[in-house]
Design a protein around this nucleic acid. Structure first.
Lengths: 213, 213
DNA sequence: CATCCGGGTTAATGGGCGTTAACCACATCC
DNA sequence: GGATGTGGTTAACGCCCATTAACCCGGATG
């Protein structure tokens, strides 16, 4: 009915990438054999070389791809510009959460296997990541004008760690479902950012804030 | 026979472990060769086998070791029991931050290479981790009685991600120094935990979704 | 002095794995 | 209906690397 011979729909290549991402995330780049990746998509062994130059090329495409999509998504949300900086920040957070929850394996790879790339690809990924971070930093500083740039940057890194924590979950149903999880993460991230502002306001001394019990 | 155990403070074995941790964290377990580890401590190649049964044994000892130390530290702080649950939580946070900042490579390994362990070691590490998490969950719920247990657990996981974010830093001096960083992370973690309480207070329902079942 | 033995060394072994070679089947095009 | 190209297959090659073998040396031991 749909797609008959459209220019490369969702087949093979992407299927391979998806499975490779999952396997790499589970057992690490070096921990996965080419044969396993093949098996995961029904073909076996060197058949993959009809689609990719090699194992490295798969990883490179995955990492560059996700970095680009993250940055593009972020830029889009910033460009759309909500009614306020706060709205933009919330949009950034939600976008990142969607990524973390839906593309869990990719998020894992993103900060785990970067060093396995060829110099040139690695530089590209790093640059994209840096731009993404700076995007957040700008928005955060707009919302919370207090803290220094380096503080804001560190906070952004930390919140990324927080949002990306989903991959490290305990398997069973010991944790909330997706929508509740998204909502919770959103709140945690906002709370963290709020703290950096509050802290800067009070400065130095310990917070010890027992919020109106 | 004679147990002339030299009280050697930092002896070989530990030196090897430290270097192995650093290398594993940098390039992944499979990414670093036995020869490299040897070279890092001045001996070369199979000389390591005078100290360890094999490469796996090193990783196992590292992961079990860090998990035990984390849990022991946590238990100690809980046992000491500050003047209030809040104080205990702050102590837990500070302890974890010290770990994350001082034993960066180990923290990295901790959630990166767990699957490379033999079944038995892996189970042990998982159990230690779980106990550590539950320790936090109890304290958090004492401080913030609102949220459900699964929410609290997810929040703890997320805050771990936040606190462990230090390894993923950009290299240069684009980030605060150690003491400032510790203080900042402390504030972020508290802010995040505070948020989960506030959030639960506001909409107060929907917590009843029993997982699993 | 002879003997252990802890801690090293280099050389050999062996398996795993990425990649390449050689070959094949089918659809499409002219 | 033969040429062609696309997506597979299995077998072979070669490297990397963990582990083991065989040998060695300095210092306690006695």
């Amino acid at each position: 009915m749909s797609d008959a011979q459209a220019p490369a729909p969702t087949s093979r290549r992407e299927q391979i990438l998806r499975e490779a991402a999952r396997l790499f995330a589970e057992r690490g780049f070096h921990g996965v054999g080419v044969d396993e990746i093949g098996a995961a998509v029904g073909i076996s062994g060197p058949g993959l070389y009809r689609h990719f130059a090699g194992k490295d090329a798969m990883l490179a495409e995955l990492l560059v791809g996700i970095s680009e999509r993250l940055l593009a998504g972020g830029r889009m949300r910033v460009a759309e510009g909500g009614e306020s900086p706060e709205a933009v920040l919330r949009a950034l957070i939600d976008g990142h959460i969607d990524f973390a929850l839906d593309d869990r394996p990719l998020i894992t790879l993103h900060d785990r296997e970067l060093d396995r790339l060829r110099e040139t690809d690695r530089k590209r990924v790093r640059q994209l990541q840096r731009q993404y971070v700076e995007l957040w930093v700008d928005v955060v500083r707009e919302v919370h004008p207090g803290p220094s740039e380096s503080r804001a940057r560190a906070a952004v890194h930390a919140v990324f760690g927080l949002l990306n924590s989903t991959p490290h979950l305990g398997r069973p149903g010991a944790l909330p479902g997706r929508t509740e999880m998204a909502e919770l993460l959103h709140g945690l991230a906002l709370g963290a950012f709020g703290a950096v502002a509050r802290e800067a306001a009070e400065d130095g001394s310990m917070a010890a804030s027992a919020p109106g019990a």
